[in-house]
Amino acid sequence: MKKDLIALAAALCLGFTASAFAADTTTGMNKDAFKAAKEKIEAQYKADKKACDGMHGNAKDICRAEAKGKDKVARAELDAQYKPSAKADEKVKIARADADYDVAKEKCDDMKGNAKDVCKKDAKAAHTAAKGHAKADAKAAQSGANSGAAAEARKDASKDTADAQYAAAKERCEAMKGDAKDKCVVDAKKKFNKS
């Protein structure tokens, strides 16, 4: 009888330990910790946004874009900690790409003419590349690094990135005139394998 009780107690302890371990691996944190972290992120966003109030013009716009981007990335990271998955990791990377893109676009507003256009195209190219890599990484994590879906996603990301970089290169040519512009366009087409 005593042995049976000891065996039963040991089995129950092992069962509770295993279920607690399983709960920890499926979710990165408990609801209370998630709620507390979310409130901390909200407070930080309000503080960051308030710090922009004393600024003027485009500097204020850049500051707000940085605060908003930081908030979106922090929220995505928190969600990824709370419910870890390949999709959550992808959302973090896309949030970072979107935040960087929004800030870069705001910084381009300080420029004029072709320089501004080139700046925006460069920002778009970087954004396209970052999002493409995030999606490809997620596909690889979901289906295995050597799968056809992962390879196809990487191929699509490379093509989209090259297209965006080509658009930026063509925009740089717009500032030129005559033969220099023609040579620039030909070089861009050659570099990015466009006809």
Rank of each mutant, 00 (worst) to 15 (best):
A76T: 02
K83Q: 07
S19I: 10
K49T: 09
T27P: 01
F16T: 03
L12H: 00
Q81Y: 06
T26E: 10
L8A: 15
F16C: 07
F16M: 06
D79E: 15
K38E: 12
K49W: 14
A23Q: 11
L8I: 01
D24M: 14
N58P: 03
D48T: 07
A37P: 00
F16Y: 05
E90R: 14
L78I: 07
V92D: 06
A51C: 12
L8S: 10
R75D: 05
G28M: 10
E39R: 13
K91S: 07
D53P: 02
A74V: 02
L14I: 08
G15N: 00
Q81T: 07
D79A: 13
A88E: 05
D32T: 15
D71T: 01
A22Y: 13
L14D: 00
C52W: 14
G28Q: 08
L5F: 08
T17P: 00
A33Y: 12
H56D: 11
K87N: 08
K91P: 02
A43M: 11
S85K: 01
H56K: 14
K40D: 12
G15T: 10
K35L: 11
F21S: 09
K72R: 10
A37G: 03
A86Y: 04
D61M: 05
F21Q: 11
I41M: 07
A36M: 12
T25S: 10
S85Q: 05
A74L: 03
D89G: 14
D48E: 13
A47Q: 13
K46G: 05
Q44C: 02
A51K: 13
A67R: 02
I6C: 03
F16I: 04
K70Y: 00
D24N: 12
A10C: 07
K31T: 11
A10Q: 01
G57W: 08
I62T: 06
A51N: 15
K60A: 10
K40A: 14
A22Q: 09
Y82A: 09
F16V: 06
T26C: 11
A23H: 08
A23L: 12
C52H: 12
A51D: 15
L5G: 04
F21W: 13
D24H: 15
A11L: 10
G69L: 02
A33H: 12
K72D: 09
A59W: 01
R64G: 08
E77H: 04
K31I: 13
E66N: 09
A65G: 04
A7V: 05
A74D: 09
K46L: 14
R75W: 00
K46Q: 15
T25R: 14
K68H: 07
A88D: 05
G69N: 01
E66D: 11
K93R: 13
K72C: 01
I6M: 04
K60Q: 13
A11E: 00
Q81F: 04
A43P: 06
K50A: 15
M29W: 12
V92C: 08
E90V: 06
A43Q: 14
K49D: 07
R75V: 05
K38D: 09
R64T: 11
E66H: 03
K70R: 10
